[in-house]
Structure formats: C-alpha cells, structure tokens
Amino acid sequence: MVAPENRVEDLCSDCFRWEEDPSTAGLLQQNRSVYHYNDHMKEVLAIYKFRGDAVLVQVFRKAFHQTFEATWSKDLPILVPIPLSTDRKYERGFNQSLLLAELLLGNPEELLSKTNSEKQSKKARKERMERENTFYVPDPEAVKDKRILLIDDIYTTGTTVRMAAKVLKDAGAKDIYSYTLVRS
C-alpha cells in the first residue's frame, strides 16, 4: 500500500478503500502525483491528450522529473507506461503516458498491452471501477521479480493503475508503484 518512508497522513481515502478490498489489497506500494486536478489542468490535459498536442508534455518536464527524483532516485524501478489500445493510439497518434515516461531517467519498457475497449474519460466513477480488466502481460518473464513503476497521465479512481498492477503481480512482478502527472 505505501512505501515505509510515507506517513499515514499522506494517504488519500482511495488508498484506504482499495486496501480494504481483498482483491486489490497490496497491489500497489504507492501512488505519487505531481498536480491536483482543477479546471485549468482539465483544459491542459484535454489539449495534450485529446487534441493531439504531444509537445505539451515538455511543459511538465521539470516538475515531473523533480518529483520522480525525490521519490524514486535511490532505487530506480522499471518504468512502464500505461498502454493504449491499438484503436486509441491510432486515434491520438501517440501514447501520452509513454511521453511522460520518456521525461524520466531510464528507458521506459512497454511490458503491458491493452485490448480495445470503451473510452474511460466518458464513464462515471462506478462504471470505471466495474469494468473488465483489459490489460495483459505479453512476456511474464520480463516482469518476474521486478520492481515496476507504472506511469500514467491522470489518477481518477485508481482503477487503471490497479488493473495494470493486478496483471503485473499475477505475472510475477515483485513491487509495483504508480506515478501520475495529475490526481483528481
């Protein structure tokens, strides 16, 4: 649920909720986000993600890198961007999570894949949390006994990173963390 250096008062209500559920307890060691979601960030993310302005990732370089260094610089995990389905990647022209991962030290490894599914941005919280897991690990040997840092643009309900963590854990990953640009 949380790395030893973190305090209970640093935890959000989602951490407690996810840890109470036996099916999701212990999947993530920690999630860290750089920014909180607000009206301005909503507009920036819409431009970045949905209107194809991939170069906008550079605006986040300094803060994204500094928070990463402060949290994970001592023992670097493998950087694994949350994948997009083939349809979504074709639609956008890029994977926003991969671009964020490329801002950090180390080389991102695309160790997860995703089947085509409905857009999550249009779903309500309950619908997001009840959806089927569409992630899979094509090569379980590549994650076995590894420390993984999932990279994503936004943490809304925690469902995405936990579904990704579930398949990674089932494939043998040792510890899984997540790092997001924004936390709603």
Rank of each mutant, 00 (worst) to 15 (best):
R88W: 00
S184L: 09
S73L: 04
T160D: 09
A63Y: 07
Q58V: 03
L98T: 09
K166R: 15
Q66A: 14
K119E: 13
T67W: 08
D21N: 15
S73H: 12
Q120H: 03
L100G: 01
K169W: 01
V143C: 07
E91D: 14
F60D: 02
K89Y: 06
L79T: 00
M41T: 05
I82H: 09
R183F: 06
D170P: 10
D153E: 06
G158N: 11
K74I: 03
L28K: 01
R162S: 08
L100M: 04
A164R: 05
T71W: 05
I148H: 07
L181C: 02
L99P: 02
G26V: 12
T156N: 06
E20A: 15
I148T: 09
K123R: 14
G52D: 01
T156H: 06
P4M: 08
L168Q: 01
L105C: 11
K169P: 00
F135Q: 09
E141A: 14
A164W: 02
V44W: 08
E102P: 02
E20W: 12
R125F: 10
S117I: 00
Y48E: 03
E141C: 04
C15N: 09
E19D: 13
L100S: 03
Q58W: 07
K114S: 07
V182P: 05
N95A: 08
E91M: 13
L149Y: 05
I148Y: 08
R61A: 11
E118N: 07
F68I: 03
E127A: 15
V2I: 14
N31T: 15
F68E: 03
E118K: 12
E127S: 13
V182Y: 05
A3T: 10
T67R: 15
R147Q: 13
G172N: 06
A3I: 10
Q120Y: 00
K174D: 14
I151V: 15
I82E: 07
E19Y: 12
H40R: 03
S85Q: 00
D21L: 11
S97H: 04
D152A: 02
K74M: 06
L56T: 10
A46S: 11
A25C: 13
R125Y: 09
P138T: 09
Y37I: 00
G52F: 00
S178H: 04
R131D: 14
D39Y: 11
V59F: 15
R17S: 13
K122H: 13
R88Q: 05
T115M: 07
A124D: 14
P77C: 10
L45D: 01
K126F: 06
R61I: 00
G172A: 07
E20C: 12
E130A: 15
H40V: 02
S23G: 01
Q29M: 13
A173P: 12
L99R: 06
E110D: 13
K169E: 00
E118I: 09
T157N: 04
L100K: 02
L103S: 03
T86V: 10
D14L: 06
E102V: 03
G93P: 02
Q66H: 13
G158W: 11
L84W: 05
K126R: 08
F50K: 01
R183E: 05
E19A: 12
A124S: 15
A171M: 11
L99M: 07
A124T: 14
I151R: 09
A164P: 07
P81E: 04
R17D: 10
M41E: 02
D139H: 15
G106S: 04
A3C: 15
V8W: 12
L84A: 06
Y90N: 11
A70P: 01
A70Q: 14
A171W: 10
